[in-house]
Design a protein around this nucleic acid. Sequence first.
RNA 1: GGAGAUGUGGCAGAGUGGUCGAAUGCGGCGGUCUUGAAAACCGUUGAUCUUCACGGAUCCGGGGGUUCGAAUCCCUCCAUCUCCGCCA
Length: 423
Amino acid sequence: MLELNFIHDNKAEIIDRLAIKNFDASNIIEEIIELDIKRKATQTELDKALAETNKLAKEIGILYKTGQREKAEEIKNRSGELKLAAKDLEQALSNNIILLNEKLVELPNIPHETVPAGKSDSDNELVYEEGNIPSLPNNAKPHWELASEYDIIDFDLGSKVTGAGFPFYKGKGARLQRALINFFLDEAIEKGYIEYQPPLLINSDSAYGTGQLPDKEGQMYHINEDGLYLIPTAEVPITNIYRNVILKSEDFPIKNVAYSNCFRREAGSYGKDVRGLNRLHQFDKVEIVQIQSPEKSYETLEEMKDQIADLLIKLELPFRIVRLCGGDLSFTSALTYDFEVYSAAQKRWLEVSSVSNFESFQSNRMKLRFKDKDGKSQFAHTLNGSALALPRIVAALLENNQTNEGIRIPQALQGYTKFDIIS
RNA sequence: GGAGAUGUGGCAGAGUGGUCGAAUGCGGCGGUCUUGAAAACCGUUGAUCUUCACGGAUCCGGGGGUUCGAAUCCCUCCAUCUCCGCCA
């Protein structure tokens, strides 16, 4: 969420910039400012009442010690009245804070100045394109047909054992997945990231910290009995490591990488978009997270973008990078690049990564701070990106590399798969 | 799952109802001394809200309660440790 002081000082600018996200902030900003002014006044009043009761309590202590009982009783009565007043003020203050927070979490992050205006993905800005789109023969097959032809992914079996969207990977299909995971992790470690294996279940504080709660609750699987959620991405546990933490500026940059299963309910999806590996309830992903100082976070975003591009080049997949327009940008992000690979048999671009700078939006929520040069606490910037999401990479590899002999494995991966063709 | 114990500042560790945001030690930072360093000595050293400032308020695992007054008493939740049970 946005910082209160920032909202006070930059009202007009925030309204202008949020218009790019097609969000009309004018009313809510007024409400927030009004609530905050009221909050401060109530706080001051409460502090005064408490200061008075503290003073009286001390006096009573002294009176008892010196044996002046009646005088003490007298003051006790006065103290009782003050206490009732303080209780009311406390109630008012806590209601005020709840209301203020409800409003604050409704306010999206401000888009970076380079974010183009727009309504949908068709307004995204193409920033980079790489590789040749392979020309496949007319009888080229989509990946779900290849998967069953070579017996490497079994969707029906997943439906039987669990439900739609939970496939089994089998034989060389399973080995290909494992190879990709190791390849992605090794590439990140090479670039200085620390590898983590996070818990796959998280509590509600963590879900709130990275912004899944309060309003995206329906997208996560929820274990009611224990009040836990299945992670939709490793971003949640990996970023929440730093919830309520005060870092030193020399700790920057923090670079973490984690492989995890990801679980998404994705209610309401249907049709060709969800065919095969295009959209699953459970999938694998390697996620990179960086925590950086505000001055350097955009430099870091570019570095992460190049790092992800490098993976796709090594996998010999044609891809493009788009800068998300305001309408497509997520609630929490200030700037996001999406990576899309071309899946040649489906003849469509598939999103395989999303790399974002959240600036201080997440860190304000989870109170992730650092001490600056002057010893003052500031919110750190958080960034993350998929590097990469597995299923659509597998889909593109299968479709783009199909030959009459079988499916060719790219050079960079052969050391991991220990085979060079799926036949 | 059962029984018991514990949870205090960066760390260690005192404090069991009243001037305690908290002794002391270590660590950190600054200084004296020194050519420099070490040692020694002196000083300093948590967070949040509020105020132009002085100051004030809140925080001793989380939440709630008792009391004029709570780190200290009560309830509850969480975490850690020990023993038993179960188990990959």
